[in-house]
Design a protein around this nucleic acid. Structure first.
Length: 953
RNA sequence: GCCCUCGUAGCCCAACGGCAGAGGCAGGCCCCUUAAAAGGGUCACAGUGUGGGUUCGAGUCCCACCGAGGGCACCA
């Protein structure tokens, strides 16, 4: 079937290597020839095509392995990118050899800013750039020998792919969240309920009294994808709005680092908040790193508490959210956020008599004070608010009544209360909240302790637990209760009086889903005079039109008072469209926003399962087979990809969004699984040193030398070393292409897997790559004559020590590979090979074959070549992985170290099957131990079978 | 400020609570070589960030501190 190119071409190769190098040495050239050969063989033989259910091979237990797909950037891959890909590949190859049907696909997250920005600069269509980059990535990945199923490679920019992205959007648009049922349902069912009168219109109007536009407005207000006029993150520098997740803590864009402003704009949103509970709760059902779960929980930010209503003297009601309703007796003032709508309504015309001067901000009237404060707060950037935690604020002039004790408490406006969280208003309890304590101290407000901090407490606000005090009125007393009971009691009391209810609050906001960009999925939406309408399924895909100018209108990055203007708006012929959507031909206006980059990655793992399907985004059978719930795993198993490997940087964004979409698809009955990713693994990063000269400019890292004093120089000049990312601008990029040229892909793979455990970040060190290369060279030399290229194994039985070394290695590797401990697996193979090298002579065939098979997941090309040389016609990709024979794992005799008080003092050798008493007796009879004890009886003797003996004096 | 990781030889990293070293890099010496090395062999190098505690026994478990990396940050 295949030719043996290492021999055919081998004879020609020595001319270009050193004169004395044997002609069949495993060097970079040889490796390159072997690797290209096997990559072609695998492709032609369709070795890694994974069968779908019903196809031959699908009866084997399935495993779905996936990497987070890359964005195909113009600069290509550097050595850091494939770390996870190789790790997944090694596991996949191991699992194939242990009888599994392994699906390991790869695709491209190809919509995004860089291609668009390049298009803006050069006029090149983003599709041209994107496809060229994808081709480059494919070639780079292919040369690494990754066992992907090539039929299943998808790109989010493929029209056949984004057709289904639009279809899913459509499903989301055509659904609402039924809070009673706790799941999404089709919007048609909502309409039917309104029509039948089984569901009340939220504002109490009768459905029959509404005209069609009004009805549509009610319906649109329930959709999971909806338009809202709400404060959003507007980034004039990018000319687009951004999701909360895309804005950094200091109020700038994650991409480009431009200022971001809060502006009220009409935008598309997705109702992810409806799923807040399920997104938080179901984290308990997936096998993810605790750190990632913690980040998601933190982002969702569920907190349980109460809403409490305070009546003001003017009759207005201020509703607050608090997690500590138990401390209500200690509420001595209230605070509204500067943007709170009640601020101006409650402010009276004049200050009350004797108002504290600190409260007025020096203004003549409450309205002046409030207006001035609001203006000042609005001018402050997020960064200012964050960095300056000194409490500022001003009295509104109004008082509200504390419902538990009738106290009149002053209402302030202060920017330490945020409009975006809870109700934008708080009851302030300085005794139990440090922020309120600071404010109360600054403004001279009373502080009443309601939780007993204990005698030794001399600090400020007490947030710990303790018995309640000072908390009683005529009807209820919380005094003496613990926090939990006090909360329950006061909520019941408030609820009975109509002054409050138990509520749950979330930090999570609805997901801003529209962007003013060209290079993204168009919405499958058209507008008529009343609002948005989803295009019927049969009119998908909505293909991106060609435009002359790819740029959104960008502005002075600092000018907040600008409006987003999407590039698709300029495709006037496309925007205006005549359609018959059931009311006869009519002109509609297309939606000109595009979807954010996250859209495609929300569901790509489903498309891999059935990439050619033109009837459905994925067939039910394929979805069930590959990611369906596995009750054998656990009763509550939510299903999902068996292993998803990628960087921790997606902990919140991508992983939360795709969970959200998956749950909608589940609710609507389109998938059987409830979670997209069953097990998540975060690989570490390959990092690199970078060097700057005295002017602070980066110099080529490759050319820097280390002096004996530990200092670094470049061209004789001293340079300073930094450690961090690999990047073009840092002049420290190393590419896999270079490594394949200089050492071969197998060496490169082994190096990446060997330098540390998968989850660990570590520095790149080109210098160290020779280690794995030497190892492969030695394996080759042990099995192949470097002068003739002939295999040289013996048919003699292996000796006892070799068998022991072999089976010890098998047992170890068998354990390490599925646990992703590739570094220790490789070490065990090196150890075994070192043993073979030292033994000298020819390696016996069964030992050679086992070694080659065990090497195959890590270094597949050289393993295939050796396997073929050993006389096998078939690929080893599905050959059975060696199994250790217990006989060679147990020794006849065991050496026990003998400790006296935990320190090793002697050693004895006893038969492996010796009982504990025998071992103990032998230990105590040892002359060194007898001397140590000096005739005294040991207090205690601990025998750990097979391990050691510890004598306690 | 809070939360999560992680500190073992010059470097990268191993070590079910049981003899601190599996492996690699770099280094020394020897062999091969006219010479060289990405060839072969061999040798040395740490007591596990610091201080306590639990234990017969701690790199491993607990507490505090120091250092590095990451996440969150006026979220009521």
């Amino acid at each position: 079937m295949t030719t043996d190119i290492s021999q055919a071409d081998g004879a020609a190769s020595p001319a270009d290597s050193g004169q004395q190098t044997p002609p069949f040495r495993y060097d970079a050239d040889m490796a390159g020839r072997i690797e290209r050969k096997w990559q072609d063989v695998w492709e032609q033989a369709e070795t890694f095509h994974a069968p779908n259910p019903g196809e031959p091979g699908s009866e084997r237990p399935k495993v779905y392995l996936m990497d987070m797909f890359p964005y195909p950037s113009g600069s290509g891959l550097h050595v850091g990118h494939p770390l996870g890909f190789i790790g997944t590949d090694v596991l996949g190859r191991y699992l194939r050899m242990t009888g599994h049907n392994v699906l390991h696909p790869m695709g491209f997250d190809a919509f995004g800013l860089p291609a668009e920005q390049y298009a803006v600069q050069t006029g090149t269509h983003p599709r041209a750039t994107t496809e060229a980059n994808i081709a480059r990535y494919r070639a780079q990945l292919r040369q690494l020998g990754l066992a992907h199923d090539p039929r299943r490679s998808v790109a989010t920019t493929d029209i056949e792919f984004y057709r289904w992205t639009q279809w899913i959007f459509r499903e989301i648009f055509e659904a609402f969240y039924d809070t009673d049922a706790g799941r999404a349902r089709p919007i048609t069912e909502l309409r039917a309920e309104f029509e039948a009168g089984t569901r009340a219109v939220p504002d109490g109007r009768a459905w029959s009294s509404l005209d069609e536009p009004a009805r549509r407005e009610v319906i649109d207000g329930h959709r999971l994808a909806y338009i809202s006029e709400a404060p959003v993150n507007w980034c004039p520098g990018l000319g687009t709005v951004l999701a909360n997740e895309e804005v950094t803590a200091d109020g700038r864009s994650e991409r480009g680092n431009y200022p971001v402003f809060r502006r009220s704009l009409k935008q598309w949103k997705m109702r992810i908040t409806a799923y807040a509970d399920r997104l938080a709760d179901d984290l308990d059902r997936v096998d993810w790193p605790e750190s990632v779960k913690a980040m998601q929980r933190n982002w969702i930010g569920r907190s349980e508490g109460a809403q409490v209503r305070f009546r003001t003297a003017g009759g207005a009601e201020i509703e607050v959210f608090t997690t500590r309703p138990d401390t209500l007796f200690g509420a001595t003032y209230m605070v509204l956020a500067p943007e709170h709508p009640l601020v101006e309504k409650i402010a009276p015309t004049a200050w009350p008599d004797g108002v504290d001067e600190r409260w007025t901000g020096g203004a003549a009237t409450p309205s002046d004070a409030v207006a001035a404060y609001r203006t000042a707060a609005g001018r402050k950037s997020e960064l200012d608010r964050q960095e300056n935690k000194d409490k500022t604020g001003v009295f509104t002039g109004a008082y509200a009544t504390n419902p538990v004790n009738g106290e009149q408490i002053p209402v302030f406006v202060a920017d330490y209360v945020l409009m975006g969280y809870g109700t934008g208003a708080i009851m302030a309890v300085p005794a139990e909240d440090p922020r309120d304590w600071d404010f109360a101290t600054a403004f001279g407000l009373p502080i009443i302790r309601t939780v007993d901090p204990g005698e030794n407490w001399d600090g400020g606000a007490f947030t710990g637990v303790g018995p309640m005090i000072n908390s009683a009125n005529d009807e209820i007393s919380l005094n003496g209760l613990g926090v939990t009971e006090a909360k329950r009691a006061i909520i019941d009391w408030l609820a009975a009086r109509g002054a409050g209810d138990a509520v749950v609050q979330y930090k999570l906001r609805d997901w801003l889903f529209s962007r003013q960009r060209y290079w993204g999925e168009p919405f499958p939406i058209v507008w008529d005079e009343h609002g948005p309408i989803a295009l019927p399924e049969d009119q998908l895909p909505v293909v991106l039109p060609d435009v002359d100018d790819y740029a959104p209108r960008a502005y002075d990055p600092a000018d907040a008072n600008t409006e987003p203007e999407p590039p698709l708006g300029r495709a006037v012929d496309w925007v205006s469209v005549e359609l018959d959507l059931g009311e006869g031909p009519k002109t509609y206006r297309r939606e000109t926003n595009t979807m954010p980059q996250w859209a495609g990655s929300c569901w790509y793992y489903l498309r891999y399962l059935d990439p050619e399907n033109s009837d459905r985004f994925v067939s039910r059978e394929a979805e069930k087979y590959w990611i369906g719930k596995d009750t054998a795993r656990s009763a509550q198993d939510p299903g999902g990809v068996d292993l998803y490997v990628g960087g921790v940087e997606h902990a919140v964004l991508h992983l939360l969004y795709s969970r959200f979409w998956h749950k909608i698809l589940f609710d609507l009955g389109h998938v059987s699984s409830e979670e997209p990713f069953h097990k998540l693994f975060n690989q570490g990063y390959i990092q690199a040193f970078a060097y700057t000269d005295t002017r602070g400019l980066y110099v080529p890292a490759e050319e820097v030398t280390e002096g004996e004093d530990g200092g670094f120089t470049w061209n004789g000049e001293p340079v300073t070393r930094e450690y961090g990312k690999m990047g073009k601008s840092l002049k420290n990029v190393v590419t896999p292409d270079e490594m394949c040229d200089r050492y071969g892909a197998d060496t490169f793979r082994l190096y990446e897997m060997y330098t540390g455990p998968m989850e660990a970040s570590r520095p790149w060190s080109t210098r160290d790559v020779v280690g794995p290369q030497r190892f492969l060279q030695r394996v080759w030399r042990n099995l192949v004559d470097e002068n003739s290229g002939e295999i040289r194994v013996s048919d003699d039985e292996p000796d006892e020590t070799t068998l022991r070394a072999l089976h010890k290695a098998i047992a170890g590797v068998h354990q390490d590979l599925p646990a992703l401990h590739y570094n220790t697996a490789a070490a065990k193979l090196i150890e075994l090979n070192n043993h073979l090298t030292k033994s000298g002579g020819q390696v016996s065939r069964p030992v050679a074959e086992s070694l080659v098979l065990m090497l195959a997941p890590l270094a597949p090309h050289i393993a295939e070549e050796l396997w073929q040389k050993l006389g096998h016609d078939e690929t080893l990709a599905y050959a059975p992985f060696p199994v250790a024979d217990e006989r060679y794992l147990v020794a006849d005799t065991v050496e026990y170290p003998i400790q006296v008080n935990g320190k090793v003092r002697s050693r004895i050798t006893v038969a492996a099957d010796a009982g504990q008493d025998e071992v103990k007796a032998a230990a105590l009879a040892d002359e060194k131990i007898v001397a140590e004890l000096g005739g005294a009886e040991p207090r205690k003797v601990i025998v750990v079978p097979g391990r050691l003996v510890n004598v306690v004096k």
